[in-house]
Amino acid sequence: MNYFLSEEQNMIVETAREIALKKILPVREKYDHEGIFPWDVVEALSEADMCGLYIPEQYGGFGGGVFELCLAVEELSKIDGGISLAMAATALGTFPILLHASEEQKQKYLPDIAAGKSIAAFGLTEANAGSDALGMRTTAVLDGDHYVLNGTKQWITNGENAQVYTVFAKTNPEKGARGISCFIVEKGTPGFTFGKHEDKMGIRASSTTELVFQDCRIPKSAILGREGMGSIVAINTLNYSRPGVGSQALGIAAGALDDAVKYSRERVQFGEAISSFQAIQHMLADMATEVEAARALLYATARTIDAGEKKFAKDSAMSKLYCSDVAMKVTVDALQVMGGYGYMKEYPMEKRMRDAKITQIYEGTNQIQRNEIALQLIKEAAS
């Protein structure tokens, strides 16, 4: 199917594919088993000027948008959905700066992120504040020219490997959603340490770590926007970033489909390739249709965002929801096509299925996405 990519966009796809095949494919099994963070892949992306695809040229980026980011993440995720997270999660941590930072803050942080010298992380989730972000307990108390941060963030992607963190804390707990603020916190700030490194089912080459703040003093100038804007920063960020999760899920699904088709042509049973059996053909046909439908929705959403449309929360939630559900279904079906071989760790399909599952959970569970979609539908009908 032709999605009418520009010459530059096709170049992004080709570059990401080359990095995936040369840098990710040889190490994906080892990195998954041992939980190794893919610094060598980050370096390769940096050398290819891929780290700043969504960052404006004035800050050293490519000058693209969400669509260009999605193209690259999808292609990397066809080979490994965990390793691709080094790029996707950095975008998540960077969007608050892109959307809400002062010019001075943008000049300070974006060039190094665009150059691949820094990676970023997004510090919202806590042990008792996942879907219910308002339940966070991390606080930021103003003390002279500094805020003092105290609390713990959990399940933070890029964890201890990032250099720049966008962290949410309550500056006025009595005000509910209007009492949350967002801050830029640099690695190495006194009082900022790391806790438990999570041992995960999938995306094991992506670090997931606790962020611990104990009387961590950060300057007033580290706040994004103004005090009390944290909920707005979080909502806007997630609306921009959810297609990135969609592209990760889409890549996992597309890679699983490719593997299943290849295997079905090579596997011989009853004297012929199993690709000749109608039962297998119908499974492959359904998988391919679902992947293309997911891609069409994701690309349309990303292009809508980049076109400057103001209302895209519903589209963003739909793309994350549908792509991740497709990833889960396609990887399960692809594993079934491969039978016993698909179930073995010697082959990548069981890993794809493990990686796919997280895309239905993080950056808003798919149940939360359905809530958001329904809310937007009802608002549209009421207006």
Rank of each mutant, 00 (worst) to 15 (best):
N2D: 15
Y3W: 10
M11Q: 04
E14Q: 15
I19V: 14
A20D: 08
L21W: 07
K22F: 08
K23W: 08
E29A: 05
H33M: 08
G35E: 09
P38M: 09
W39V: 09
V41K: 02
V42E: 15
G52W: 02
Q58N: 11
L69C: 01
A86S: 12
A88F: 05
T90D: 00
A91L: 04
L98S: 06
S102L: 01
Q105T: 03
Y109G: 02
D112Y: 01
A114P: 02
S118F: 00
F122V: 07
T125C: 15
A129C: 12
G130H: 13
A133I: 03
T138W: 15
T139S: 15
I156K: 13
I156Y: 05
I156D: 05
N158V: 00
G159T: 06
G159N: 12
N161T: 07
N161W: 09
Q163W: 04
Q163N: 05
Q163H: 07
T171M: 15
E174D: 00
A177I: 11
R178G: 12
I180M: 12
C182Y: 02
F183T: 06
I184H: 07
V185F: 14
E186L: 11
G188N: 04
T189E: 01
P190R: 07
P190Y: 06
G191D: 01
G191N: 11
R204T: 13
T209S: 02
F213S: 03
P219H: 13
I223D: 05
L224N: 04
G228E: 01
I235N: 10
L238R: 14
L238F: 15
Y240W: 12
S241I: 09
P243W: 08
A249C: 04
I252L: 08
I252S: 10
A253R: 06
A260I: 04
S264A: 12
F270W: 03
E272W: 00
I274S: 02
Q281E: 11
Q281V: 03
A294R: 03
L297G: 06
L297F: 00
Y299G: 03
A302M: 10
A302E: 04
A302Q: 05
E309S: 06
S316E: 13
A317D: 15
S319D: 14
Y322K: 10
Y322E: 07
C323A: 11
V326R: 08
K329T: 02
V330L: 08
D333T: 14
V337L: 02
K345D: 14
A356Y: 02
I358F: 14
Y362Q: 02
E363A: 11
E363V: 03
I373M: 08
A374R: 05
I378L: 11
A381M: 10
